[in-house]
Amino acid sequence: MEDVKEMTADKVVAKEKKEVKKIMVICARGTLEDVYAALIMANGALAEGKEAKMFFTFFGLDAITKKKADHLHTATVGNPAFMRGLPTMIGGLPGFEALASSMMKKEMDKLDIPPITEFFEMIEAGGGEIFACKLAADMFHLKKEDFIPEVKDIITVRQMYELAEGEGTHMVFI
């Protein structure tokens, strides 16, 4: 066992630290917290001087759809981390989810976290690029004009991988 430990330690030391140069964030979810996680990671990469690209698919398309982007909700039912002890039936009352979501947005505003559409403007201004998934857009009957203006293009998976090309790219799936 002694030998194994030494070998492992050597390998760890020998490993070269490589810089993260590009972040490709894939977001397939349309809940408030998931979309914010995607935006904060992409924006954070730009703020650190890294490249950032975003690819939205399935319910993630809500985040870049004009009519829905600033009205995303957090789930109050089926989300055990939300207000522990809250009976599921209360979480399901009409308007409860909207209330909880607007309260969360207020708290975020205090921390200078921008609303979704403004966040996309910031990311674009910082040189980030935003894309929609063609297959999902076709499935939900969404066209370029349905999306916020920061959406650069509707692309296929092949094109998405092309955008991720290069040394030092990390892909994050949400």
């Binding site: 924006n43 730009l46 703020a47 200078d112 921008p114 403007e121 910031m122 201004a125 910082g126 040189g127």
Partner: peptide
């Protein structure tokens, strides 16, 4: 506490100019 967004709202530069 400073953020890029605050600089963007400072009236001096927008975020694009700041970058």
């Amino acid at each position: 506490p400073l953020t890029i967004r605050k600089v963007g709202k400072s009236g001096i530069v927008d975020i694009k100019e700041f970058y």
